[in-house]
Design a protein around this nucleic acid. Structure first.
Length: 807
DNA sequence: GAGCACTGC
């Protein structure tokens, strides 16, 4: 494979640039510092200052002073030390420009590349002029990830010389490190701010809201942008800063334009990274995994010391590549130990246990002898290393050009993962990972032509790739009635919105005019998918809310089953011993109960091939949801008799998941999903024993084939009884499914028939009818889909509310 | 008889 050097990655400043930051402070700053006279221990450094009228000169004076203006305590030596390093950040040198723009404008777009210091400094700058503590307000800064919110808050607390959780804090799910009345600068995940908006649409607590990493376009950030743009008109005192990477700036400037045709002002700060040389292949590569392996070995043989980061798409691919690279590199070294050093290949993906993930920070292997060259570390990673994790010492990046991306198919109502080409922005981000500690190289396993002509500029924002049921419910709770005309940065497909509305209507969360029902208002408060929220809220009616609470928590965490490659048989047999024959949902309940019984046995999870991390997380989520249940006075109820309990649970499942049901007629091989017919198989991990004509499932996955995963057997009578609106038989296309349901309905009306007789009758009738209906069923299906969207009056609204709810 | 890209409440 031949690479050609084509370009230096754009927007990477040269090394000289960097030195100018570290060695010599900008002229203006130097002058200013020497002219500052430190006022000795004056009690109020901000005495007489008005919020938003503080000048940069005053700010610098206070920063360089001896008294912390926010606590009136003397600054520590650590503060002074950190301040000196802060002064070297690119953003610090543009403080005056920032204040000029911030004081003059309500909305500001800010662009700052890696290393500019925007995430740590801008919120502090804002505090120095906003003086939120003087008016009982807060400044907040959102992050897409929990870890970032926590670690940045810690850093900024140190920089401001205050304990974390006091003046500076953070708020993430399960953890609120703030002190009401004291905290005035709060880092938080975007999801938490969105939750706060649901209870206070004016976000009155905040004087300034900063959305960081807006270019990542998470669902929560996108919705927040829409809300804030609107809120800015109602609350003219609120200031908004949207921070992003360069490429998206103009889009955000136009979106946040307050006056027609006048884009929002842009504040731009250069980054501080090293140049990265980019190489492309001359020819397209048919097999990128193979090409990647050859490139790793080529670098190892011929390039200077420095670690390698290789981007592939998923766990299996990564483990496979690691084994092969390791084997080949070991061979090479054996053959020629004098000129080739040892190589350590380390996999990285999110489902890896944390101890394994830590390995990426190990130093490269040391050379075996004095004459042999130094060792090299190769990290083979998913996209997790693109944004979430930073590895120091990476000099070479190999970019396969692919990643797994979530896609939503509104017609099939299925979210699935698909290996897809990355965007230019993503390719640039990957390349940048090579230039964090010194100049680096990036090898792209595709041609420059492909890069220029075939890659999209940006990765499609999440809002265009997701099932929006949850988002639509949140918007409804936020009082957004007209979803189609909501001011999205990028509007989702109308069909996706229709699907969400349809689901919420069937769940009785929205009425036929799309008004939120009392039930919907409570559902929106739960941090759950609408199906699960509904199921949990109605579960006291079935005397099993205690158990449904557990099941919902277990369904909210990543896969709990460990299955190590060399111990599959043992893992499978351990799983079998925990399985409940009626269905996987009951198995999850059983696993959780066993986990709690053995909570003091640290080896229990390990011995049973279960993920300790997922079980712990389920326990956390269960506790949080339990608090919500108490808040809404939803009773925790159990049923003593286990047989009855299991029936009750399966009935409660139907109340949430009646749209996720598949049917297999007698004598048929495959299951077919209801209403929108798709042929599906039970996922091999499914523990359901025996034949079950009707099954309810949690997930529909498209991997190789169409599978349903986490499956429980249900009775068709329950479908008709607990979801009469969806199972309105007239809305079904003629065919086997309709006949089966008609038969069930008939039997429900004539309960005098014995069970045995019922079964016989069913069978013979179904067969005859099935033959008649064989033709033309496909056409009918299409009709049903469009009918389903309009829907009929909410028949089961009254049934949906638990009697314990006084509404 | 298959496989959880990555986040978040």
């Amino acid at each position: 494979m031949i690479f050609t050097i084509v370009s230096l990655a754009t927007s990477m400043p040269t090394k000289r640039n960097k030195n100018s930051y570290t060695n010599a402070p900008p002229v203006g700053l130097e002058k200013l510092q020497s002219s500052i006279t430190v006022t000795p221990s004056k009690a109020e450094p901000f005495y007489g200052s008005l919020p938003r009228h503080v000048t940069p000169k005053q700010v610098k004076k206070v920063m360089d002073g001896s008294i912390n203006p926010f606590t009136n305590q003397p600054f520590t030596a650590q503060y002074k030390r950190i301040l000196e390093s802060r002064k070297k950040l690119p953003v610090y040198t543009q403080m005056e420009e920032f204040y000029r723009m911030f004081n003059k404008n309500q909305i500001l777009i800010m662009v700052g590349e890696t290393g500019s210091g925007k995430t740590t400094q801008i919120p502090q700058f804002v505090c120095y002029t906003d003086l939120p503590h003087t008016k009982g307000k807060l400044v907040c800064c959102t992050q897409p990830r929990r870890v970032a919110a926590m670690s940045v808050a810690k850093r900024v607390a140190d920089e401001m010389d205050v304990p974390l959780g006091k003046e500076v804090g953070y708020s993430i799910r399960f953890e609120d490190m703030t002190e009401p009345g004291t905290t005035f600068l709060k880092y938080m995940t975007d999801g938490v701010l969105l939750r706060e908006a649901m209870n206070d649409p004016n976000l009155t607590r905040y004087s300034t809201i900063i959305l960081d990493e807006a270019h990542e376009r998470t669902l929560a950030t996108d919705i927040l942008m829409g809300l804030l743009k609107n809120l800015a008109r109602r609350r003219t005192d609120l200031k908004i800063i949207v921070m992003s990477a360069t490429l998206d700036a103009l889009k955000f400037q136009k979106y946040f334009s307050l006056k027609q045709g006048k884009p929002a002002p842009l504040f731009k700060v250069p980054g501080r990274t090293y140049p990265v040389e980019v190489f492309y292949t001359r020819e397209p590569q048919l097999d990128y995994v193979e090409a990647a392996m050859r490139t790793v070995l080529m670098i190892h043989r011929t390039e200077d010391p420095g670690d390698i980061l290789l981007f592939l798409t998923g766990e299996e691919e990564i483990e496979d590549a690691c084994r092969k690279i390791q084997a080949e590199a070991d061979d090479l070294q054996k053959q020629d130990p004098g000129s080739i050093g040892p190589l350590a290949c380390i996999p990285l993906y999110s489902s890896l246990p944390p101890s394994q993930q830590q390995r990426i920070f190990d130093p490269p292997p040391s050379s075996r002898s004095v004459i042999s060259p130094p060792g090299r570390k190769v990290v083979v990673s998913t996209n997790i290393a693109e944004t979430s994790l930073t590895i120091d010492g990476i000099v070479y990046v190999i970019d396969s050009g692919f990643s797994k991306q979530k896609l939503y198919n509104p017609r099939m109502r299925v979210e699935s993962l698909l290996v897809s080409p990355i965007s230019k922005a993503s390719a640039q981000q990957r390349a940048g990972r090579a230039g964090r500690t010194r100049p680096g190289k990036c090898y792209r396993l595709y041609t420059e032509h492909v890069f220029m002509t075939e890659l999209e500029e940006q990765t499609h924002p999440e809002i265009l790739r997701s099932n929006l049921a949850n988002t639509v419910l949140e918007l409804a709770k936020l009082g957004i009635k007209d979803l189609v005309r909501f001011d999205y940065v990028d509007a989702p497909a109308p069909e996706t919105l229709m699907r969400a509305l349809e689901l919420l209507n069937y769940l009785s969360a929205l009425d036929d005019e799309c008004n939120m029902t009392p039930l919907g208002a409570i559902m929106a408060e739960f941090p759950l998918e609408p199906q699960m929220a509904k199921m949990l809220i109605v579960s006291p009616k079935f005397n099993c809310s205690n158990e449904i609470l557990t099941i919902v928590a277990m369904l909210s965490v990543p896969n709990i089953w460990n299955r190590p490659i060399f111990m599959r048989r043992e893992a499978d047999s351990a799983k079998r011993s925990l399985e409940v024959p009626e269905g996987d949902h009951l198995t999850l309940l059983n696993v959780y109960n066993c986990y709690v019984q053995n909570i003091h046995n640290k080896r229990w999870a390990w011995d049973n091939f279960l993920s300790q991390r997922s079980l712990l997380q389920a326990n956390n989520i269960r506790a949080q949801l339990k608090r919500y249940m108490e808040k809404f006075d939803i009773g925790l109820i159990s049923t003593r008799d286990e047989i009855q309990l299991y029936v009750n649970i399966r009935q409660a499942l139907v109340c949430g998941f009646f749209m996720q049901v598949a049917h297999k007629g007698a004598g048929e091989v495959a299951y077919v999903t209801v209403k929108v017919p798709e042929v599906v198989s039970l996922h091999p991990s499914c523990g359901l024993s025996g034949e079950s004509e009707w099954v309810l499932f949690d997930e529909f996955v498209l991997t190789g084939g169409a599978y349903v995963r986490t499956v429980t057997a249900v009775k068709p009578e329950w479908l008709l009884e607990f979801a009469p609106k969806y199972y309105d038989i007239n809305s079904f296309p003629n065919g086997k499914m309709k006949n089966a349901l008609l038969q069930v309905q008939k039997n429900m009306r004539t309960p005098s028939l014995s069970i045995g007789a019922k079964k016989k009758k069913n069978k013979s009738k179904n067969k005859k009818k099935a033959k008649r209906d064989k033709n033309g069923a496909g056409e009918e299906n299409n009709k049903t889909q469009s009918q389903a969207v309009t829907g009929s009056p909410v028949a089961d609204l009254t049934v949906s509310l638990p009697s314990s709810l006084a509404l």
